[in-house]
Design a binder for these strands. Structure first.
Lengths: 222, 222
DNA sequence: CCTGTTGTTATTCGCCTGTATAACAACAGA
DNA sequence: TCTGTTGTTATACAGGCGAATAACAACAGG
């Protein structure tokens, strides 16, 4: 029974970019906290504080909204990683250690991040646009790591062949990915410090770089 | 417009265990090939060649069916891993190499396996029963790997402390997990041979075991 | 203050979902 | 051959989904 005396809900007009951004952020929040199943137009619009119809004013379909959300999420993650690395005045070994530490700490390593990742990876398989975003991001991450590894090895006077460098990078990336997975899925098992420490020991062994772990620890303690 | 002349669909009676198993297998096939979104009672029953109502005759809710499917899937994976390891007559180092190779080959490393994993991991977070299955499986996998590593190190006369052994196991497991992830998500990037080779080199470096890769390769060539 | 634009709400639609219930028929046992 | 059990089909229902449409109102430009 509708209440005919009820006023129409008041609202503010927002610039198109701001509102669009709000809808994307709300989408990511919903997926992260309640899973992809809960990400309906009604739930998302409620999270954003607007009515469901508004989503269709900014996105032609719900699929478009999800694509935009995935894109923004990935871009944010990449920027976060590269930010931890951009200070070229630091020694290469230390920049590598920082990169690993950032990836294995919140908010990158987090149950909600895993929820986002698992939700999106299912769509990646069937949606070409999402697959492109995924591939681009992966290569960007890998080449960032490769540059760091190359620099760290060069600082010790080592110049591996391109093929060897690629294999070392993939192996190091696997260590980070695997620990990210375990840290996100079972957060109570390993703290971020232990995660980082194990990762640095392992990557140090793979690359033949001793002191990777000590270097970071020294810096953190100061 | 219903066709009143249409006959009722004929059927065969199956023993309860067989039918139940068919429904679970159909569920896994649907999730693996078309994603968790497609796993509706209608799609699953069609895949199994029965009508939707039958699902409720064997499972109280759809959630129960998904839980049973997750349980069976995980059990199968564990048995597959342990099977690759059970031949105690082989040297410990070779058994470790075999374990890694099995995990990084189809059907364990496969886009469909990733689809299953991603679909279930979202439910793990909110369903206590699924979380228990998940945790149990993870520990089982880890302790299997720990035993192999312990044996391989002992064969070289090394006896690390329990804490060191645990850290080495977690790092080695991360290599396998990370490469499993990359091999499943981007199968065209790295073939199973390359995946295994990178994993064995990396784990060999982490554990300080040389020849892990050569050992397996020699055996495969013969 | 007035007016046009358009961001926003409200309402509706058809479809699909999981679940409930009743009718039916395959097979077992007599 | 008959009969009872129950595995299986058929049908119905309430609710939620994404999407379309129309009505409204906030703000900008005059």
């Amino acid at each position: 029974m509708p209440d005919s005396t009820r006023q129409r809900r008041p609202f503010r007009r927002e610039g198109p970019d701001l509102r669009r951004r709000e809808l994307i952020d709300a989408t990511l929040r919903v997926i992260a906290s309640r899973g992809m199943d809960a990400a309906t137009v009604r739930t998302i619009s409620e999270e954003a504080g607007v009515t469901p119809g508004l989503i269709r004013h900014y996105f032609e379909t719900k699929e478009d909204l999800l694509g935009a959300a995935y894109d923004q999420h990935m871009t944010t993650l990449i920027e976060m990683s590269q930010q931890a690395v951009e200070d070229a005045s630091q020694p290469a070994v230390r920049r590598l250690a920082r990169f690993v530490e950032t990836t294995l700490s919140t908010p990158v390593t987090d149950p909600e991040a895993l929820q986002l990742w698992a939700g999106f990876i299912q769509r990646v398989r069937r949606d070409e646009a999402m697959r492109r975003i995924h591939r681009t991001n992966y290569h960007s991450f890998l080449s960032c790591l490769e540059e760091l590894i190359s620099g760290a090895l060069a600082a010790r006077g080592r110049r591996p062949s391109p093929d060897d460098l690629k294999r070392l990078t993939i192996a190091s990336n696997a260590v980070v990915d695997g620990l990210w997975l375990e840290g996100s899925a079972l957060p109570e098992m390993l703290g971020p410090d232990e995660l980082t420490s194990i990762a640095l020991d392992a990557i140090g062994a793979i690359l033949g770089l001793d002191g990777l772990n000590d270097d970071l620890r020294k810096e953190l303690d100061k």
